[in-house]
């Protein structure tokens, strides 16, 4: 395995939230002591429900927001402070793709101009070279220069997401954070974009963070997968193995909740209760109020992420060591 391109060491990020007009403001821990290491050219998948902190993690890793605690290293160097010259230089090497391509594009500019914009901002190449690069990028995402002359409104959802991808690739980044990039697309178009992303990653040697709630898509594209619950990583391991043999009770429920053609719902684990509220984090293991196997210890003691065999790490009091017999309960 090559050296990690991105090294995240125990980052935390909290926001303050006030409940009601006169309520006291409380700290919401969106991300709590998350550590990740992403090898060059590989994809880390981040899964979890809304409010689990996946997007915040993506934004902190990308330097869009500073962490309250902890550090992000990119290519061996710590992220520079936002707004500085060094930060701008680093930011050109990393880009982000969001879920809603229409929201990420300017409706009043032809898309080719928008693909060129990052080159203009970072002052890369002569104007003629930028034009060429924009055309080359359009080809790379399997669109024609004719598409480039159009406005976002005249393109389909899949085509718009390709434009966003082309724009993200304009500055030749090494690192891409994709936040739910295909969630808004229809299945057949989703497959086109996933294939394209995989091809581009192979051609350009991109390192990716792929954030999604869709386990199938995450497995398809990721080498390593981290499962998040209320701002913490509860399980992390290689993609195929993690989905085939989930160890954490939450991962087991997630995998079992993912509907599959040809399977009836009889064997499904249905979790009780609502998705957790980040502002009212349960004590101990945050998952314990919904966990079908919780014991007394889970309510008082926060489990730490520890190696249970292979490259798998799990944060659960009930999963210990490589010999743990944890699956029979599932």
């Amino acid at each position: 395995m090559s050296a990690p391109l991105v090294e995240v060491s125990s980052i935390s990020r909290s926001y303050s939230m006030r409940s009601g007009m006169f309520g006291r403001s409380t700290a919401v821990h969106a991300v709590d002591a998350v550590s990740l290491s992403i090898p060059k050219g590989e994809t880390l998948g981040l899964v979890g429900e809304s409010g689990s902190g996946k997007s915040t993690t993506g934004r902190v890793v990308l330097g869009l927001e500073p962490p309250d605690r902890g550090e992000v290293c990119f290519g061996g160097k710590p992220m520079a402070a936002p707004g500085t010259q060094a930060w701008r230089a680093q930011r050109a090497r990393m880009q982000m793709i969001f879920q809603d391509p229409l929201g990420a594009l300017d409706r009043r500019l032809p898309v080719a101009t928008q693909i060129r914009e990052p080159l203009d901002i970072h002052g890369l190449g002569t104007p003629a070279e930028r034009e060429d690069r924009a055309r080359e990028l359009l080809r790379a995402v399997e669109l024609t220069p004719a598409h480039g002359a159009r406005y976002p409104g005249a393109l389909s959802g899949g085509q718009r997401q390709r434009i966003v991808l082309a724009r993200a690739l304009a500055t030749k980044p090494d690192f891409l954070v994709c936040d739910e990039p295909v969630s808004a697309l229809d299945v057949s178009i989703q497959a086109q974009v996933v294939n394209l992303l995989a091809d581009l990653q192979a051609q350009l040697g991109l390192t990716l963070v792929f954030i999604s709630h869709d386990l199938r898509v995450v497995r398809q594209i990721s080498n390593i997968v981290a499962v998040m619950y209320l701002g913490r990583i509860v399980e992390i391991g290689s993609a195929d193995d993690l989905f085939a043999r989930p160890e954490h009770p939450y991962t087991q429920a997630l995998v079992s909740a993912s509907p599959a053609p040809g399977r009836r719902s009889a064997s499904r684990i249905v979790l009780a209760g609502d998705p957790p509220n980040p502002a009212a984090r349960p004590s101990g293991c945050a998952f314990h109020p919904r966990c079908p196997r919780a014991i007394a210890r889970c309510a008082s003691e926060v489990p730490t992420l520890s190696l249970v065999g292979g490259d798998r790490q799990v944060a659960c009091h009930l999963v210990t060591g490589p010999q743990a017999e944890t699956r029979d309960a599932a």
Binding site: A253, L254, A257, P259, R268
Partner: peptide, 9 residues
């Protein structure tokens, strides 16, 4: 969310 989808179904 996935786990809530399972409940509703």
């Amino acid at each position: 969310d996935a786990t809530i989808q399972a409940q509703i179904l």
